[in-house]
């Protein structure tokens, strides 16, 4: 893609992130931080490509570490976010006790 198109994507994505978060209640701040932490685990894709194209031993070692770290980011981020949000599910099923909302 050309530089200008890339710049447009950058701008629109930045506004999207801002908008998506701006309406979040405090109750979900920590899970959402964890969720966004999971989303940037997409770096795994880039690390795979970098290691996949590595040729020298040095590149391979760094690429290996990159994939390992990125996989940790993605998997760990998913597990802890899922664990936190699972509790919100159970509270909905029980819901309606004495709500004001």
């Amino acid at each position: 893609m050309t530089g200008m198109v890339a710049l447009y994507i950058f701008m629109l994505a930045a506004f999207t992130g801002y908008e998506v978060i701006s309406r979040v209640p405090v109750i979900l701040h920590t899970p959402l931080m964890s969720g966004s932490n999971f989303v940037h685990g997409i770096v795994l894709v880039g690390a795979m490509v970098a290691l996949g194209n590595a040729t020298t031993p040095l590149e391979k070692v760094i690429g290996f570490l990159g994939v390992l770290l990125a996989a940790g980011n993605a998997v760990g981020g998913y597990v802890v976010t899922e664990r936190m949000l699972e509790m919100f599910k159970s509270s909905r099923q029980r819901g309606g006790t004495k709500g004001t909302h």
Binding site: M1, A6, I9, F10, A13, A14, F15, T16, G17, Y18, V20, I21, S22, H29, L32, M33, S36, N37, V39, H40, I42, V43, V45, G46, V49, A50
Partner: peptide, 22 residues
């Protein structure tokens, strides 16, 4: 941007701006 990978650009930027607001 370096790898020309749209998924990384969009996901990374969304998290970047959302995280800044947070």
């Amino acid at each position: 941007f370096v790898l020309n990978n749209a998924a990384m650009i969009i996901a990374g930027t969304v998290v970047g701006s959302a995280g800044t607001l947070l």
